[in-house]
Design a protein around this nucleic acid. Structure first.
Length: 572
RNA sequence: UGGGGCGUCGUCAAGUGGUAAGACACAAGGUUUUGGUCCUUGCAUUCGCAGGUUCGAAUCCUGCCGCCCCAACCA
């Protein structure tokens, strides 16, 4: 029934050796190490822009980069790609650091910012100008666009392309000195305006932005672009394998061009893999921002969000996210992973570690008529049958209990193993009961059940070992504590939310159902924010870290248990 | 259509000329004091399509078809 040789916590998927070359990037890294490139050194980095929160797609990159560093005895840096002061904030920096740490990636003392390199980048820009490989351009934004041509037509050279070096040098210095307003000048590389790769048509290196930077303050009014920053930052940090997503593939020739034409201390190489897509989920930072700003969710950490903080609040564990990443693989084909794999990953972990407790979400009162009034028994309950190290706890049992409304049906089909008049069921760890009477209100709704129990079945087994098909969870009415329970479902009601009339039109109106007056066994009274449980026969839940209070607990449903009965029923 | 990529089971994904791994999902059984877990079994004569090379091709060649990325003073 369970696995006696369970590996210790958090080691699933960590079969060490066989994992080493399991994807094309690790094969490249392994080849490089074998060939002694970079002196056998491996150094990766995760380079987020601090303009939003991390999501599950970023986790894929973090695990890839950090995993490779670990597996090859290398190093891993966290570097903020903060070259656009208008969208970047310290709030995001702090949130990203917390998320990366929580996921388990350790950058040790190597926390860097591209803005740390502004002086070097400036010097290197001057170097390019001096070598006739960059020039200051006076074209306006619209003109730059027009001169660039299209994918099928070559561009035309900027009228400033042959500006004398001395003049560009002077202008660039004055751009830096703040003599010109935004948009009046740019620094551009002098490559090839007819290049078939649009990225190589004299790309922009610097723009003027009189904006306050979250780290450098007002020290600069010119800022380098991504392409002029990323590879050079990798070079400065000694990054050996610069791993990014597929859309940067067209940027690679430019990445290499800067490495070749600048006096860099090291030559990094870029490799690209397919970014993660998940069914029923959107991953675009811009669109996630919209969900937050327009109030479709309560914030970046709304448990329905695919953000790391959202998943954390939902009850996901770092182990589960890592296991998920181990299973989806790394390749170059665009793909969309089934959400069910993410759910499988969290169930797989929580099944092993989450204590079982009894909670009745939609209570129905049951009076056990032959149970002595006023008597209270203490029932010993197993905390987790999957974990031999877990213990037991005492749960009070009495004459009046709550059971789940769905666990009773007056007219039940043969396959319904739960409570119905004339069918005996077991109360988990307690007694067998039979339903004798159904009490209804004026509207004909069932409001209470009168049952009798078999005193010989204490503990949930009978001397004659008669077969009992159904086992129900229960909570003693007098001892129950109340709680709010939030049932989450997919944020979108389509596997591909962008289809149809767009993601906003496909929001799932039933993505959150709030239940109040739920009845919990009293052992849960001291549950702390973040604590995870399996509500027996129902789902995994965790105590909300934002809204839960002692005496007014709030639980988030992380993921349901598999529900074979629901499947049988839906088939009719 | 100028360039760059990618097309193997419903979804991911191994495979690198020797005769289609694995996982999730799904289906059928078994165990079970969670209709959970666990166990067993099934699930691509076929690798976008069409030719060709070869004793032998998902792997090599040719030609098609389809999808993604690039024309932000975003990253």
């Amino acid at each position: 029934m369970n696995r006696p040789d369970d590996p210790p916590l958090g080691t699933s998927g960590d079969a060490a050796e066989p994992l080493k070359e399991r994807d094309f990037i690790r094969q490249i890294v392994a080849d490089d190490v074998r060939a002694g490139r970079n002196g056998g050194r491996v150094h990766t980095r995760f380079p987020p822009e601090p303009n939003g929160y991390l999501h599950i797609g970023h986790a894929k990159s973090i695990h890839l980069n950090y995993g490779i560093a670990q597996e090859f005895g290398g190093k891993f840096n966290l570097r903020f790609d903060d070259t656009n002061p208008e969208t970047e904030e310290t709030e995001y920096v702090e949130a990203i650091k917390a998320d990366v740490r929580w996921l388990g990636a350790d950058w040790e003392d190597r926390l860097f910012y591209a803005s740390d390199y502004f002086d070097t980048l400036y010097a290197w820009a001057v170097h390019l100008i001096e070598n006739g490989k960059a020039y200051v351009c006076s074209l306006s934004e619209d003109e730059v666009r027009a001169y660039r041509g299209t994918v099928t037509e070559p561009g035309r050279p900027s009228p400033n392309r042959d500006r004398p070096i001395a003049e560009s040098l002077d202008l660039f210095a004055r751009m830096k000195a703040g003599e010109f307003p935004d948009g009046t000048y740019t620094l551009r590389a002098r490559i090839d305006m007819a290049h078939p790769n649009m990225k190589m048509r004299d790309p922009l290196l610097y723009r003027i932005k009189h904006a306050h930077h979250h780290r450098t303050g007002d020290a600069w009014c010119i800022y380098p672009f991504y392409d002029f920053t990323h590879g050079q930052s990798d070079a400065i940090e000694g990054i050996t394998h610069s791993i990014c997503t597929l859309e940067f593939e067209v940027n690679r020739p430019l990445y290499d061009w800067f490495i070749e034409n600048l006096p860099v201390p090291h030559e990094p190489h870029q490799y690209e893999f397919a970014r993660l897509n998940l069914t029923y989920t959107i991953m675009s930072k811009r669109k996630l921002l919209r969900l937050v700003r327009e109030g479709h969710v309560t914030g970046w950490d709304d448990p329905r969000m695919p953000t790391i903080c959202g998943l954390r609040r939902r009850g996901y564990t770092p182990e589960a996210i890592r296991e998920f990443n181990n299973r989806i693989g790394v390749a170059k084909a665009d793909s969309t992973v089934d959400y069910s794999l993410l759910e499988w990953s969290i169930r797989e972990h929580l099944n092993r570690v989450a204590p079982r407790v009894m909670a009745v979400l939609r209570p129905l009162r049951v009076v056990i008529t032959n149970y002595p009034e006023g008597q209270v028994e203490s029932i010993e309950c197993l905390d987790n049958p999957e974990d031999p190290a877990s213990g037991t706890r005492q749960v009070p049992f009495s004459r009046e209990i709550y059971i789940e409304r769905d666990d009773f049906r007056e007219d039940a089909p043969a396959k319904f193993f739960r409570l119905t008049p004339g069918r005996e069921v077991r109360l988990k760890h307690a007694y067998y009961i039979n339903c004798d009477q159904v009490i209804k209100n004026d509207r004909g709704e069932v409001v209470e059940l009168r049952c009798t129990y078999d005193p010989a079945t204490r503990g949930g087994d009978s001397p004659d070992h008669r077969k009992i098909k159904g086992t129900l969870h229960w909570v003693s009415c007098a001892h129950a504590i109340d709680a709010e329970v939030r049932l989450y479902d997919h944020l979108f009601n389509r596997p591909l939310p962008e289809e149809g009339d767009g993601f906003l039109a496909n929001l799932n109106p039933g993505s959150l159902e709030v239940l109040t007056g739920c009845k919990l066994e009293p052992s849960l009274a001291g549950a702390q924010p973040g604590d995870r449980f399996q509500f027996l026969r129902n789902a995994y839940f965790c105590v909300d870290t934002r809204d839960s209070r002692p005496g007014a607990l709030v639980f988030n449903r992380t993921v349901t248990l598999k529900d074979t009965w629901a499947k049988i029923e839906s088939k009719g």
